[in-house]
Design a protein around this nucleic acid. Structure first.
Length: 426
RNA sequence: GGAGGAGUACCGAAGUGGUCGUAACGGGCCCGACUCGAAAUCGGGUUGUCUGGUGAAGAGCCAGGCACGUGGGUUCGAAUCCCACCUCCUCCGCCA
């Protein structure tokens, strides 16, 4: 959510910045509603002040045994009037809240301007795309030939967009989780968190997934719970409604969770394999930072995610998302894209964003500055470190050999009982 | 799932319809005094938020509103009475 004061003081700026994100900001609606609400609130407050003062008089009169029915009758009318005005105010507040919560975050000035991903800016390319002297297969063919991946039976059990892995395939997923968490906790200074895999609607509002993107989520029948689409939701909300000390910042947390997404609106896209699933595993990094440090923390967080790709020796590139390609909540996003031989292209494997105070305002996460001044909103950041399913795909495809076996990246071998090559099972 | 109890500031806790919400009392923390320094002692301070005014300022100051788990209700007036919900605790049942 954007600050109402900020919008009021910077109408043109807000309008033009939102346009870059493809959002049409209705400033007239905002100004009218703001004005109406404020004048209404002021009238209510004046009447309440009158009632408070008169109530004290009534108490005094009653205590000294004097007649008080005059002011009581008078206040009966005043209270009635207050109640009427409060009904109007409540409606105005709901409208304002709905309006504000539907406005996306403003893009940072360093973000490339453009309507879609064609305007994304490539920051750096690390490693060389693999070239094979044989016909390279995709991960589905490789996986099923090796007997470590079975998409058909997953479909039988659950449906389309689910996966089933066996033996070294399942082990590699578990190894990736431990490897990533170990690097982030032991070397990058993150605190490991194991959060709930469901969260309530308040938490989803806090991170900006609700109310606008409910169609992406799995909701549990007859409850207020949704399955988490990313650890961002439960972890960012850990300190919702709280005031931290500045000394606690930056607060760095990392968490493994499965992620559940409906992928509505992506029918027909990425139908083959593990690229787009209803359920996938992910290790996420989440940070709270001060406004002064959030952009340098974003660089660190992105580097932390890149470190995983580097240790796995996977070729990748880093792009800055253009204004029109960014998410609703983000002020700046770097995507890490890993090389996939089967698609002859780079595919997103991590998304690292600074949300500034957009989520913190929604979730009411603040910190008390060292100077003892009033509480301020923290800046929240997060990034995948990494999406494990897609990492699995990248390893299988990039490390394939002519005979269809898969070399296990060195960094992963200690996590796989020393296994160095995945060969056909059974 | 059943029965009972409880949610008040940083923590503990008092307050059961009126001038007691910056909210008794105790502790913690911060500043100051005493001291060579510290402890002890003494003095002061210590919730957040919104509206209006005054400011360059969403710094400070002034006036006022709101908040005693959350949301409603009764009343001239609610921490206090009523209803619903949430959370925690104890006992019983079930259970990995």
């Amino acid at each position: 959510m954007l600050s109402r004061h900020f919008i009021k003081d910077n109408l043109e700026l807000v309008e033009s910045k939102l346009k870059l994100k493809g959002f049409d900001f209705d400033s007239h609606y905002f100004i009218n509603l703001d004005q109406k609400e404020r004048s209404n609130r002021q009238e209510i407050e004046e009447l309440r002040a009158l009632r408070n003062k008169t109530s004290e008089d009534i108490a005094r009169l009653k205590k000294s045994g004097e007649e008080a029915s005059g002011p009581i009758l008078e206040m009966r009318t005043v209270s009635q009037k207050i109640k009427e005005l409060e009904t109007d105010l409540a409606e105005e507040e709901i409208s304002m809240h709905a309006f504000l919560s539907g406005i996306p975050n403003l893009p940072d000035s360093s973000v490339p301007v453009g309507p879609d991903e064609s305007a994304n800016r490539i920051e750096r390319i690390v490693g060389e795309p693999k070239v094979f002297d044989f016909t390279a297969l995709d991960h589905v063919d490789l996986g099923s030939r090796l007997g470590i991946l079975d998409m058909e039976r997953a479909t039988k059990i659950a449906g389309a967009r689910f996966a089933l892995s066996f033996g070294p395939g399942a082990l590699m997923e578990r190894a990736l989780m431990n490897f990533m968490l170990d690097v982030h906790t032991r070397e990058h200074g993150y605190l490991e968190v194991l959060p709930p895999f469901m969260a309530n609607s308040t938490s989803f509002f806090g991170t900006g997934n609700l109310p606008k993107f409910e169609e992406d989520l799995f909701k549990l029948t007859d409850t207020d719970y949704y399955l988490v689409p990313t650890a961002e939701v439960p972890v960012t909300n850990i300190y919702a409604g709280e005031i931290l000390e500045e000394e606690q910042l930056p607060l760095c947390m990392t968490a493994y969770t499965p992620c559940f997404r409906k992928e509505a609106g992506s029918y027909g896209r990425d139908t083959r394999g593990l690229i787009r699933q209803h359920q996938f595993n992910k290790v996420e990094m989440v940070k709270y930072a001060t406004p002064e440090t959030s952009y340098s923390e974003l660089e660190k967080l992105t580097a932390n995610a890149e470190e995983i790709l580097q240790r796995l020796e996977l070729p990748y590139r880093v792009v800055t998302l253009a204004t029109g390609d960014m998410s609703f909540t983000s002020a700046k996003t770097y995507d890490l894209e890993v090389w996939l031989p089967s698609q002859d292209t780079y595919r997103e494997i991590s998304s690292c964003s600074n949300f500034e105070d957009f989520q913190a305002r929604r979730a009411n996460i603040r910190y008390k500055p060292k100077n003892g001044k009033k509480p301020r909103f923290v800046h929240t950041l997060n990034g995948s470190g990494l999406a494990m399913g897609r990492t699995w795909v990248a390893i299988v495809e990039n490390y394939q050999q002519a005979d269809g076996s898969i070399i296990v990246p060195e960094a992963l071998r200690p996590y796989m009982n020393g296994l160095s090559v995945i060969t056909p099972q059974r």
